[in-house]
């Protein structure tokens, strides 16, 4: 697994912008924003933003990602807290389900035409 991102949307790490001696001069951290567009639907990733803390992040997300009635609920997650599967695994991570057609209803052709099945 690969640790969280400093640069958003599952991205690679940014070159560190640390300025020794100026701990407060560090840029505001990055947050990922998820929007629930209406009741009954999942929160979906909408984008990211910078904010100094969680309270401001959720407010900034409201201002930035729901200006046109896009949502009824928001999640913000520190980008650094997101753990992602490793793309370097080149597919073996997602190979297993391939070829297991019997997990899908369409595999069972003999029962076709039988009602309520």
């Amino acid at each position: 697994m690969v640790g969280g991102s400093q640069t958003g949307d599952d991205g690679a790490k940014a070159p560190s912008a640390e300025q020794p001696g100026h701990p407060t001069a560090e840029p505001w951290p990055l947050w990922e924003v998820f929007v629930r567009s209406s009741r009954g639907l999942s929160h979906v990733h909408a984008g990211s933003l910078h904010a100094p803390d969680a309270d401001m992040a959720v407010r900034n997300a409201r201002d930035l990602y729901t200006r046109r009635n896009e949502g009824v609920s928001l999640w913000v997650v520190p980008a650094s807290a997101i753990i992602t599967s490793d793309p370097d695994a080149k597919g073996q991570f997602f190979e297993s389900p391939q070829g297991k057609d019997y997990r899908h209803a369409t595999y069972y052709t003999k029962s076709e035409g039988v009602k309520h099945l």
Binding site: T7, D10, A14, A17, P27, L49, H50
Partner: peptide, 11 residues
């Protein structure tokens, strides 16, 4: 945000 995913910070 999109550019940041390429590894350069907004700052």
């Amino acid at each position: 945000s999109a550019a940041e995913t390429l590894g350069t910070s907004r700052d």
